[in-house]
Simulated assay, not measured.
Amino acid sequence: MTDWLTAQEVMTRLKLRPQTLYAYVSRGRIEAKADDEDPRRRLYRAADVDRLSYRKTRGRRNAVIAEDAIAWGEPVLASAITTVAQGRLWYRGQDVEELAQAARLEDVARLLWACGNARFPPQTNRIGPGTPSQRMFATIAARAANDPAIAGRTPKALYFEAAAVLDALVDAVAGGPGEGPIHDRLARAWGCDAQGADLIRRALVLLADHELNASTFAVRVTASTRASLAACVMAGLAALSGPLHGGMARRVLVFLEETRRVGIESAVQARLHQGTVVPGFGHPLYPEGDPRARALLSAFEMPEEFANVQRMTETITGEAPNIDFALAALASALKLIDDAPFLLFATARCTGWIAHALEQFQSGRLIRPRARYVGAAPATV
């Protein structure tokens, strides 16, 4: 089936008038692009049309619409921070692939937090023992237990605390206090040269935010209760730790182990026969390829094993690598510690989580959805 449909095909499938189709496009519910063969004609993404068609078949009851919105559905919260549009990722209207060319994570934090040229003064953070992940969770948990709530504080105070929370997380990952740009601090901790440090910088920028994913939603729910910024970040870390979110890079490594045992083609075919996706390939929001993976993989030469897996998987499935595959390849190329993909993810995403926490607080709304009860009927009183 084609990925793009003509206007007539869309109107026939959805039973729409032209003006309704154009309204759907203007609201971002159907993505449109110019036809390569005839620039005067527009084409419309088939996946968006299929989703709208499915919703029509289920009816328009509010409960059903809200339930569908939870999983890759319609937008459920207003935000001015990040969006996915035209197959690209945008931070406050700026193309992430372009930002990744030279920006630092601190620059992106200022952009996402809308705090102008706020400084990031180094803090004195006491970091306990343990692995980097253990230190990170313990450090943020300690702040969550002691930091004041968001409510009743000036933007300047919140921005200073945001920088302090991020600095504490970086110190925990690196193993102790440090100075200089965040990517240099991590690179020194992991024994990377200048080229490796620049690749870490690029990865951090590309991972800083990704709209309303699972961890960010957890952060916004927490922020809506007026909890502290550290508590919000703690909620994000908890959600990120799951194997379907920040743990995906580890699943990529498990798949690579499968390819070593049975061969790449057999490993891919086995996944397809099981009805499962190949870890590290494809993304629902990027039918034509994850721009974050593209921007990262173009900056270094992948280890041969990863290049072979990419080539064979793309040939069989047609799916391009996503950011999880790119992170695993980067960690392998730089010979980073085993948990480096998750640590990079958490460090970068801390900036996005804080941006969403601040925005949710400014909205003044408590996030409190209702459950659609499907259990045993309550007893008659």
Rank of each mutant, 00 (worst) to 15 (best):
Q94T: 10
F137V: 11
A23T: 10
H183K: 04
Q123V: 11
G191T: 10
S79E: 06
D171R: 05
G59D: 10
R119K: 13
T317W: 02
T139I: 01
T82G: 03
R261E: 15
A355L: 09
I65K: 03
Q86S: 12
A149E: 12
M312L: 09
A197K: 03
R60I: 10
R143L: 14
S215H: 07
I264D: 00
L237E: 03
D3F: 04
I70R: 15
Y54V: 14
E31G: 02
R29D: 07
L105I: 09
L206T: 03
E359C: 08
G128S: 13
D324F: 04
Y24S: 01
A7L: 10
L244V: 11
A376F: 13
G282W: 03
E265V: 09
G236E: 00
D147Y: 13
R188F: 04
E304F: 05
D36K: 11
E304D: 14
G242A: 14
G175M: 04
G275D: 10
T83V: 12
R143D: 02
L89G: 01
A118K: 03
R365W: 06
T259Y: 09
A331I: 11
Q94M: 12
M136R: 02
I65Q: 10
Y24K: 04
L212P: 01
E31W: 00
A320W: 05
A80Y: 06
T154W: 12
A46Y: 05
L285Y: 04
E98N: 13
L99T: 05
K335A: 14
E211Q: 09
L237C: 07
R45T: 06
A168R: 01
N322A: 08
I337L: 11
P303W: 04
Y24Q: 05
D193L: 08
E304I: 08
Y44A: 05
P181K: 01
A118H: 14
R294T: 14
S53W: 15
L253V: 12
N125W: 08
P291H: 07
G178C: 03
D171K: 06
K33N: 10
V25A: 10
